[in-house]
């Protein structure tokens, strides 16, 4: 099982990360990838920038625990999770989830499981910069619903 977790300010190269994840591993028949981006509009307000804060020390542990839980539930061979922090602008990449497995079903399921859990468990907070000032993003009920899908 290959596990790679990074919290960083720098951007990431999706192609390079997928290559690194599956490099030399002939068992891998599928890699599923999710990339989250900053949108330029949120709740009908223009977004100038977004600042992402996290809880150093807890964040990495939380991400590793989520991947381990995905591994317990799905037959996956490895996963990479990269989450950016600091100031980002519209169109910037925020998060990468890449999962490798023998067949596509497990990779797709585990990828979705990891992002759904990340959104409700990993200690990150977004603050939006709008033309009228800054505001903290509120947690979404739909994110809790997405997560609870996995609990039935």
């Amino acid at each position: 099982m290959t596990v790679c977790v990074r919290v960083q300010q720098e951007d990431f190269d999706v192609g390079a990360e997928v290559t690194a994840l599956r490099e030399g591993d002939g068992r891998v028949g599928a890699v599923a990838v999710f990339v989250g981006m900053v949108r330029d509009v949120s709740e009908e307000t223009n977004i100038v920038a977004m600042t992402l804060e996290h809880y150093p020390g807890m964040t990495e542990k939380s991400l590793i625990r989520i991947i381990e839980e995905a591994q317990r539930r799905f037959a996956i061979l490895g996963a990479t999770v990269i989450h950016r922090v600091g100031t980002l602008r519209p169109l910037d990449q925020i998060v990468l989830i890449a999962v490798k497995s023998e067949h596509r079903g497990e990779a797709f399921d585990a990828c979705r499981f990891i992002i759904d859990y990340l959104k409700t468990e990993a200690p990150f907070w977004k603050q939006e910069v709008t033309p009228d000032g800054t505001r903290w993003v509120n947690a979404r009920v739909s994110d809790d619903a997405a997560r609870s899908r996995w609990e039935s």
């Binding site: 542990k61 939380s62 990340l118 959104k119 409700t120 468990e121 990150f124 907070w125 977004k126």
Partner: peptide, 26 residues
């Protein structure tokens, strides 16, 4: 100590107790 906890969680000396709003990453 970096694990989610509740109001009934008991504490020992030098524990790190963090307070934050519901998370909004991803």
């Amino acid at each position: 100590n970096h694990e989610m906890a509740g109001l009934h969680t008991s504490l020992r000396t030098h524990d790190e107790l963090a307070f934050f709003p519901p998370v909004t990453g991803g």
